[in-house]
Amino acid sequence: MDMLKIVAFKIGNEEYGFDINQVQSIERIQPITRVPNAPAFVKGVMNLRGNVTPIIDLSKKLNLGETQFTESTRIIMTRLEEIELGWIVDKTSDCLDVPQEALETVSSTVLNREYFSSIAKYEGRLIILLKLEELMKPEIT
């Protein structure tokens, strides 16, 4: 019963996921306009059907280095509390129904990153679920 629907995607060789309720759409790369003096992980802004939407390099945000654009690079659009954002990922894999039992809370000793909510173990894959609200918090500079 307690299924969690997630959108799974890849950054490098690691698999991550967003709660599907927060995901609006998945887009191909379009021209992105750089925003000067914005945080480094903000790739820029993009025209998404008439709306100017900030695009964030998720890999950079997670300190995994800058994303190199390839054919499979996608942007996952999310929406949380009226704010729409796009997240650049290397590749989107699929949508999954993960039972609650398959979720493991991130033990603070192994991964003490505030961005991770839990790890889903699904058919041998390990998917790190991201906390969108934490990712969206402005960084203290």
Partner: peptide, 11 residues
């Protein structure tokens, strides 16, 4: 620029 990017200098 949306609620996320506010107070960008001179933009």
């Amino acid at each position: 620029l949306g609620g996320y990017l506010n107070n960008i200098y001179a933009i």
